[in-house]
């Protein structure tokens, strides 16, 4: 099955509307190819990306996550990305402490003009996570349903 063919990681990218999303769009209109493993979720601002979104992505089967927004100083809402950066500074080590490889959750600043950086970043994430392999730890707890007798439930799909 999938294991025999090459493993293709599922990456979820949470992007801010004003910078990175526009940057990714630019890459698209410029016909810059990047790996197709990424599902993009557009949000108004990195400041509004609750870390629970990232947990949810893993619960729904992501192997890796990218969170990306405007460079410091460029936030459409002035300080959203600064607040977000504070949170990432503590959330990332917390996940690492719980045994989640920090390479599975990456962060970047990509502006609306940086189509090239977007391509480079997302390819980098895909390659890193491909090398790490499937997120087996999470897959296991996603598959374990609610039955104490250990019967598997199946609520971990992308729905």
């Amino acid at each position: 099955m999938a294991e025999e063919t090459k493993f293709e990681p599922r990456i979820v990218a949470f992007l801010c509307n004003w910078c990175t999303y526009a940057g990714a769009d630019l890459a698209g209109t410029g016909r810059n190819q990047y790996q197709a493993n990424v599902r993009v979720i557009k949000l108004p601002c990195t400041g509004g990306i609750d870390p629970l979104f990232l947990i949810k992505a893993f619960e729904r089967g992501a192997d890796g996550i990218l969170v990306s927004g405007c460079h410091p100083g460029d936030c459409h809402y002035n300080s959203g990305n600064y607040h977000a950066r504070r949170r990432w500074n503590v959330f990332r080590p917390l996940l690492e402490f719980c045994g989640i490889n920090p390479e599975r959750i990456q962060f970047s600043w990509v502006s609306a003009a940086e189509g090239g950086k977007w391509v480079e970043t997302i390819n980098g994430v895909v390659d890193t996570v491909r090398a790490l392999g499937p997120f087996e730890g999470y897959q296991k707890i996603n598959a374990v349903g609610s039955d104490a007798s250990g019967e598997a439930a199946t609520s971990g799909d992308t729905g």
């Binding site: 410091p72 300080s79 600064y82 950066r85 504070r86 949170r87 990432w88 503590v90 962060f107 970043t121």
Partner: peptide
Amino acid sequence: LAMATYKEDDNQDFIK
């Protein structure tokens, strides 16, 4: 309060 404020030069060595 740490999580209700920020500094422009907060650590970002993990951000690409």
